[in-house]
Amino acid sequence: MNSNRMVVAQRGVIPPPKHYADSAWFKYILSCCAATTAEMVTYPLDLTKTRLQIQGEKGLNGNGVATVPYRGLARTGVGIVQEEGLLKLWQGVTPAVYRHLIYSGTRMVLYEKVRDHLFTTRPDGTRPVWQAIVGGILVGGIAQFLASPADLIKVQMQMEGRRRFEGKPPRIHSASEAFVKIYAAGGLRGLWKGCMPNVYRSAFVNLGDLTTYDSVKRYFMGSWGLSDSYWTHALSSACSGLIGASLGTPLDVVKTRVMNQPTDVRARGLLYKNSLDCLMKTVRNEGFWALYKGFVPCWLRMGPWSLTFWLTYEQIRNACGTSAF
């Protein structure tokens, strides 16, 4: 009977059994493992970036006066360690990991499915860039929408250390408490506060990261003749980190400010009406380049993050017998 099934499978009637290593659920797990590793290694830069994006924001202290407690990446990071403690550099890492359990797993599996079933493959193995762009933006937006509540909790927890140092009462003490308070104040809708700038940002970051990595890697392998090795992964991830940071930083600033702003009893923002309002006020009050606050730590983080993620992801796929990305 088994031989009959094999013959039928070879004729294309019944597909041969698929090994679990190439199944969607297994790739989801592998991508979550790689993302968690990258997040833990580079998280202090993400915290520093968030603090830089908030500083100088008018209205944050309730008196309309902007304060700048730190200036620059190094002084911000050193200040956090001196005033709040070394471990505070990882404050908010728990919801950050939760976010990647949803975001990274979803975007990686969805992109691979879209790429393999809808993209056009040329003889040299490359695919049209416009298809990769559309696919990257689409899956990035979907994945971030699903993970937005975890991102909201992460941003608010990242700012708690600064609030306490300024003598303000703490808003939250843990990720679970933050979830309960946000839900109690605004219901399900409150958990998606600031979700649209987050979705836009992630769509562009995914365009810069996932689309760039996939396209550049195939270009290096097809046109330059490089093998699917560490060096190819490193070069591709370096390109993806730079492009991702360049495209994503302005929307990341807007996302951070919208998510961090205080709200009224109806969960409406007290500083900004929406993402566009935040964008306009930021440019008007602080200038265009305020949209690139935190770019250096964002780039310094996305570069190592991309490198760590892609090297880890490609190697564990190879170790588990999963086909190369």
Rank of each mutant, 00 (worst) to 15 (best):
L30A: 11
L30T: 04
S31Q: 03
C32F: 10
C32P: 00
C33K: 04
C33F: 14
A34D: 10
T36D: 01
T36V: 12
T36S: 14
T37N: 08
T37M: 00
T37W: 07
T37D: 06
A38I: 00
A38N: 08
E39G: 00
M40V: 09
V41G: 07
T42G: 09
T42D: 10
Y43S: 07
Y43P: 00
Y43E: 07
L45Y: 02
L45V: 03
L45K: 01
L45F: 13
L45E: 00
L45P: 02
L45A: 07
L45M: 13
D46R: 14
T48F: 05
T48D: 04
T48Q: 07
T50F: 15
R51H: 14
R51N: 13
R51F: 12
L52Y: 10
Q53K: 10
Q53H: 05
I54V: 09
Q55S: 02
Q55L: 03
E57K: 11
E57A: 12
E57M: 12
E57S: 11
K58C: 12
K58T: 08
K58N: 12
K58G: 13
G59E: 08
L60D: 10
N61Q: 14
N61A: 13
G62W: 00
G62S: 06
N63G: 02
V65N: 07
A66V: 04
A66C: 15
A66Q: 13
T67L: 06
T67E: 13
T67G: 03
P69Q: 06
R71D: 06
G72S: 04
G72L: 07
L73W: 15
L73K: 04
A74C: 00
A74N: 01
A74M: 11
A74R: 09
R75W: 05
R75T: 09
V78K: 13
V78N: 04
V78R: 12
G79D: 11
I80H: 04
V81F: 08
V81P: 00
E83L: 10
E83F: 04
E83C: 05
E84K: 06
L86T: 02
L86N: 05
K88C: 07
K88F: 01
K88H: 10
Q91G: 06
Q91A: 10
Q91S: 13
V93N: 01
T94L: 15
P95F: 02
A96C: 07
V97R: 03
Y98R: 02
Y98V: 07
Y98M: 12
R99C: 07
R99S: 00
L101Q: 11
G105L: 01
G105P: 00
T106A: 15
T106S: 15
R107A: 03
V109T: 11
V109E: 11
L110C: 15
L110Q: 15
L110S: 15
Y111P: 07
Y111K: 12
E112H: 05
E112T: 08
E112F: 01
K113G: 04
